[in-house]
Nucleic acid binder design. Structure first.
Length: 492
RNA sequence: CGGGAUGUAGCGUAGCCCGGUUAUCGCGCCUGGUUUGGGACCAGGAGGUCGCAAGUUCGAAUCUUGCCAUCCCGACCA
């Protein structure tokens, strides 16, 4: 990373915004804070989505779809949830336009077409889903209910940032109902594990699993579990959350079930979600000054073959060899493209594919074919080597796995290097300003102290890691006794 | 919603302070040719309501007012 890119979030934003436009990942739309995801970016999202979807189904979940519009009366049913989202809702109040009598050719909202009840555009779907679950759950035999939805949501944030906080974003939200508290808590933790596995195994982004403090908890949840990742500029990013909702939503929407003894009780709930913010995490965790670096397992394109020729005759020879290799790689399930576009030169193609983060590039010229080799370049290390054509496709498959592992190891080393203990306030502030990353420090457990620390340093408690070591200490700010360190960081 | 800045071709910009011919330059785009082992070169060409509206003026990208949008700082944000 360049110095100027690591210093401020805005520089980062500008940087990948450029990449995105050049690389074809996304673009701003006309609407403030929304994004257009271009085909290459969407292919990445589809790969991520497909893998997550598989993992959800492997853990017994089914997909369903619920409406975009939430009537206000439903929305306000769970008070804490409604209050938490009230300040960032888009609201539909009318259903018709008409010609403006004052301005010919212009339209105006028809005041006659005002809705009886306003419709909230979902910022999250708990309300409408729990209102629906009421009709689906009567008996313990209906439980557990394990549903996931792929959808878009809208949150009218005052300030937006491409990928990390857009006004409209794509996500999945799981909403489950259980007969017992224990089972719901288990589900909450299980889905957190799924997220962590996805982040580490597929995105090659190391994460810390933990639990949020009361201040940072989801509105309406009893407990919020999270995975926290570290970006290359030293700021933390919440990459996914899984909530234990207790019986809050069941009570708000009157969802009861009869158990085996025919006694009525409210069901226990969880919800969990990850969004297109993960694309932001991927970009900011791995990319370098040459552009994106895609982990092979989810890269839209894993291998690109670039022919290097002079004239039609040599092109025909290379085409033949390249197509054989192309077919071999495809047969092995590799996402590969033969970039024989005659309009751009090899140098341009090299730069373009590096910008897009394609993990492996194979260059084939007459010189190579004579020697029965290709030039093979890997994106993560930028190393180039000459590799024999014999057994090349198997070699490439292994290399892709190696690159995946290397990217993860690199990010893990970077992250681990930036988890630092702080035992005094001065040390804490100095670390935040000079080193960044996660700072493990004692905290007295009160929201007041957490707020003061945030006010003075902009650092928040990212999480209390699961299986945290217990040790006696004194709060970094108040000096009051503490039983464990928590992880602080400046965050997106 | 408060403070600051910006808005000129698809993208990035000069010009604005101090009003005056046909709005500058680069990238990209189109046509033809030569090229092709790290973002090619030559020649020709297309593309503009200067954010929108009103005002001042013989004349406005330039001055004034209002509005809109975007970015940054705050507030806000699992």
């Amino acid at each position: 990373m360049s110095k100027e890119l690591t210093s401020r979030a805005e520089d980062y934003s500008q940087w990948y915004n450029d990449l995105v436009i050049k690389g074809g990942l996304a673009d701003y739309s006309a609407v403030r804070g929304c994004m257009v995801i271009k085909p290459y970016g969407f292919a990445l999202w589809e790969n991520m989505r497909d893998q997550l979807d598989k993992m959800f189904k492997d853990t017994g979940h089914q997909n369903a779809y619920f409406p975009l519009f939430v009537p206000k009366s439903l929305f306000e049913a769970e008070e804490k949830n409604a209050e938490g989202f009230a300040k960032e809702c888009a609201i539909v109040t009318h259903y018709r336009l008409k010609n403006d009598p004052e301005k010919p050719g212009k339209l105006m909202v028809d005041p006659e077409a005002k809705l009886e009840e306003e419709l909230i555009i979902r910022p999250t779907s708990e309300a409408i889903i729990w209102n629906t679950y009421k009709g689906w759950i009567q008996s313990y035999r209906d439980l557990p209910l394990l549903i996931n939805q792929w959808a878009n949501v809208v949150r009218w944030e005052m300030r937006t940032r491409l990928f990390l906080r857009t006004a409209e974003f794509l996500w999945q939200e799981g909403h489950t109902a259980h007969a017992t508290k224990e089972e719901a808590v288990e589900e909450t933790k299980k889905m957190l594990d799924v997220y962590a596995e996805f982040a580490e195994e597929w995105m090659a982004v190391p994460v810390i699993k933990g639990i949020k403090t009361a201040n940072e908890r989801f509105a309406g949840a009893e407990d919020t579990y999270c995975i926290e990742a570290l970006m290359q500029d030293g700021k933390a990013l919440q990459a996914g959350t899984s909530h234990f909702l207790g019986q809050n939503f069941a009570k708000a929407f009157d969802v009861k079930f009869s158990d085996k003894n025919n006694t009525l009780d409210y069901v226990w709930a969880t919800s969990w979600g990850v969004s297109t913010r993960l694309i932001g995490a991927l970009i900011m965790a791995h990319s370098d000054d040459q552009g994106l670096i895609m982990p092979p397992k989810i890269a839209p394109l894993q291998v690109v073959i670039v022919p290097i020729y002079k004239g039609e005759d040599s092109k025909a020879v290379i085409d033949e060899k390249a197509n054989i290799l192309l077919a071999e790689l495809k047969a092995l399930g590799v996402r590969v493209k033969y970039d024989n576009n005659d309009n751009s030169r090899p140098g341009w193609k090299f730069a373009e594919h590096e910008l897009k983060g394609v993990p492996v590039r194979i260059a084939m010229g007459l010189r190579d074919i004579e020697n029965k080799v290709v030039e093979l370049a890997r994106r993560d290390t930028k190393e180039k080597s000459s590799v024999s054509i014999d057994g090349l496709s198997a070699y490439v498959v292994n290399l892709l796995a190696e690159i995946q592992q290397n990217i993860f190891n690199r990010a893990l080393a970077f992250r681990n290097e930036r988890i630092t203990n702080a035992d005094s306030w001065d040390e804490f502030v100095k670390l935040l300003d000079e080193k960044g990353g996660f700072i493990a420090a004692h905290w007295d457990g009160t929201p007041e102290t957490e707020d003061k620390i945030k006010e003075q340093t902009k650092a928040t408690i990212r999480c209390i890691p699961l299986n945290n070591t217990q040790e006696a200490g004194a709060c970094i700010l108040s000096g009051k006794p503490s039983t464990q360190r928590v992880l602080f960081a400046r965050a997106y």
